[in-house]
Design a protein around this nucleic acid. Structure first.
Lengths: 214, 214
DNA sequence: TACCTCTGGAACGGATCGTTCCGCTCTGCT
DNA sequence: AGCAGAGCGGAACGATCCGTTCCAGAGGTA
């Protein structure tokens, strides 16, 4: 357990840890069914370098998904903290949404869900995220900045709708996602709007996604 | 070439034509990469019944996609015709969007794009659809019912975002899709809205989707 | 009856992909 | 210097999946 900068072989190995995770994130976000060899190729390493770190593809996917979940939780916690500290609700909400879009956490969670057996860690993180979402939306309703019929589960659907935009290079994709986020927010930030049609999605309605399919 | 009702074997075969197409649509909309055996199973027929009608999987996908394109063209033509006949622009637009969502044509076109080699028929239909979209959006701008920066290509993105909703049974899915269509329309039908961020998508920006990947 | 269309589904062959394994390199220690 | 072993690249393996072909039989039709 040394904290001094490693050199030589060890340093390379330590760097590979990050390189591999980044490559895996990029590859699996683009195509959740991608072969593991594609990750190795993108990372510029051999397959052994992957299997040295993760005992199986499923473990790698599991870690990636958990990371995404935790990133989301972090962003949601900050938003809730800001609201509790008296920040402007509408502005905080918009910032929250933008940060989630930028972090692209939904490509790491909902798109990867079903490709691995969820662990307790996943379930706990997901439940925590749910509580944070509920708290956030309650605050927004109290502050009357969003349409009265906005439901907690609308958040997830909005993120998912935006995550479907997957064109061009990173910058263009980001531009387009923020464009449609703005469009959706224009529809959401209407405290006096007439109700949307149909029952809102209820929490857990989409939980089926987490069950591994095979 | 008889037009009288067929009976016996022939009738069964004729019925199978429709059964197979319906099953194929359902299966491939749910999963564009589904095996052809799944279509046969869903249709309640053997694999031979499929190959008797379509020389390959690709031909079947091609036909399905063309069907979707033509359905879309039909709906768009009706909307344009209604506008030309003096119908209320906003109402016509909303009806148009609802009908496209209900027909689920985007699951048949954008989701199937890339799984087959497009033919001239596809290209012509797609170009025709593009012209209809352009005409429609121009009318909406003339009538000042939509936000000034709404672009033609926004239509496709909206349909795609909504098509990502794929939960529960048919009825629930339809409810949710109309819910989010209403949300997006609330953001779209704002003639005086401030511009959305980022350059709007331009026509053809997503054309890469049609090239077959292998 | 003889033929022929249509069918179900087994079998085939190719492709894909997760995982294992082997031999090599290079480091850090003695 | 020399060695032990961590780390690695990538070929090879085995399993699975899937599009397509093929054949035997069922049932109309003439």
């Amino acid at each position: 357990m040394t904290t001094v900068p490693l050199s030589g072989r060890r340093a390379q190995a330590a760097r590979n840890d990050a390189v591999i995770l980044d490559a895996a994130r990029e590859v699996f976000v683009a195509d959740p069914a991608a072969p593991i060899a594609a990750v190795a190729h993108k990372a510029g390493v051999g397959i052994s370098a992957l299997y040295r770190r993760y005992p199986s593809k499923e473990e790698l996917l599991s870690k990636l998904c958990l990371d995404g979940l935790l990133i989301y939780v972090g962003i949601a916690e900050e938003a809730n903290a800001a609201l509790d500290a008296g920040a402007d609700p509408a502005e905080t909400f918009v910032t929250f949404m933008r940060r989630v879009i930028d972090a692209d956490t939904h490509s790491l969670t909902q798109k990867l869900a079903g490709t691995f057996q969820p662990t307790d860690e996943h379930n706990e993180a997901a439940q925590h995220a749910g509580r944070l979402n509920t708290h956030l939306v309650e605050r927004l309703h109290e502050a009357r900045v969003v349409r009265p019929d906005m439901a907690v589960a609308d958040l997830g659907l909005v993120f998912e709708m935006i995550a479907v935009i997957r064109f061009g290079d990173d910058e263009r994709r980001s531009q387009l996602r923020h464009r449609y986020l703005a469009l959706l927010l224009a529809g959401l930030l209407l405290p006096d709007a007439a109700p949307l049609p149909g029952p809102a999605p209820f929490p857990g309605e989409f939980a089926g996604r987490w069950v591994k399919k095979d």
